[in-house]
């Protein structure tokens, strides 16, 4: 399995071929369509993160010592960004997830979506993913 840093580097390389914003978003929307979706039965209120712009559901499990994340959102761009985060964080050990800095988001120019004022649920989602990992690492 590749390390978090390796996957982040891979994503940065993929995005480097787009110099147009619309192409970049076209790609994010594609990623959003392939998001590993949360099981519908788990789409309950306690998994829901309410932003005032978009809503996000996220679920975390530990399998064979690795964190597995699934999620969903009502907004496709939000889904695309979640897809990138899951690609980086899923199948990693809880310790690594808890410590991940996720600098790639800024490098590919998407940091605006992680601003707390954007209120799209993504900031809280990352917190929840890390919290779930921290819980798993102390068990």
């Amino acid at each position: 399995m590749k390390s978090i840093q390796e996957i982040e580097r891979e994503i940065i390389d993929e995005f480097s071929i787009y110099d147009d914003w619309m192409d970049k978003y076209e790609y994010i929307i594609e990623i959003g369509k392939d998001l590993p979706l949360i099981d519908p039965s788990k789409k309950s209120d306690d998994k829901l993160i309410k932003g005032c712009q978009s809503r996000v559901w996220v679920d975390a499990e530990k399998k064979d010592g690795k964190m597995i994340f699934t999620a969903d959102s009502d907004a496709i761009i939000t889904k695309g960004i979640i897809g990138l985060l899951i690609r980086v964080l899923s199948h990693q050990t809880p310790e690594k997830v808890a410590k991940a800095e996720l600098g790639f988001i800024k490098e590919i120019g998407l940091q605006e979506h992680l601003s707390p004022t954007r209120s799209n649920g993504l900031v809280s989602m990352i917190q929840q993913m890390k919290l779930a990992a921290i819980k798993q690492s102390t068990l």
């Binding site: 914003w21 978003y25 929307i29 712009q53 978009s54 009502d74 907004a75 761009i77 979506h113």
Partner: peptide, 18 residues
Amino acid sequence: HPYDVGTLLDKMGIAVRT
């Protein structure tokens, strides 16, 4: 979704509220 539409419009230079 309004969030998606607003984000894409912004990338095309257009400011709307969502």
